[in-house]
């Protein structure tokens, strides 16, 4: 089959940039370890409390080491359970000091949800039967809206929270 000379140049340039591009994302993935979340860890969606991290008393933010935090959460239609404060009131805002390493852990008790800390790379699907995890460093201060970004029913747009990163 005949290829025009210009077409050969065009395709060579295109394929060359494609190969370079794949090398870059491959390098970022397998050498730098930047993967989207994938832990393949399962849980019984009807009994998430049986899992240590999702027991009601363990929900919310906890400092586990100097500058290291874990945030445990349970999603259900149409709410994020971030645990309760000392007055037994539901926590709606997670407060984290700047530059700390945070591991977000979340699972769903019912349908599929999303968990995105808008304006950051923390963006996960939350599916019944699976545990979603993402570790990141919160480098910027500010108030970030947490949105459920997968349709979960009539109250989907009322499912939100806040992450506050302070100095």
């Amino acid at each position: 089959m005949h290829l025009h000379k210009y077409e050969k140049i065009w395709l060579t340039l295109g394929l060359g940039s494609l190969a370079l591009f794949l090398l870059i994302i491959g390098f970022a993935a397998f050498w730098k370890g930047t993967h989207p979340q994938s832990h393949i860890e399962t849980i019984d969606p009807q009994n998430v409390e049986a899992y240590e991290a999702f027991k009601p008393e363990n929900l919310g933010v906890r400092e586990v080491a100097d500058g290291k935090y874990i945030v445990n959460m349970v999603a259900s239609a149409f709410n994020y359970d971030f645990g309760t404060d000392i007055d037994e009131k539901a926590v709606k805002t997670i407060r984290i000091p700047k530059d700390s390493t945070v591991l977000y852990q979340i699972t769903s008790k019912d349908v599929v949800h999303g968990f995105q800390v808008a304006g950051t790379n923390v963006n996960m699907m939350v599916e019944p039967g699976h545990i979603s995890r993402y570790e990141t460093v919160m480098k910027n201060t500010g108030t970030f809206t947490v949105v459920c970004n997968e349709y979960c029913g009539v109250g989907h747009h009322q499912m939100y929270g806040t992450v506050e990163v302070y100095e």
Partner: peptide, 11 residues
């Protein structure tokens, strides 16, 4: 961004 699929196969 789904939790239950091996990242290598995603890649």
């Amino acid at each position: 961004t789904e939790p239950g699929i091996d990242p290598t196969w995603k890649f």
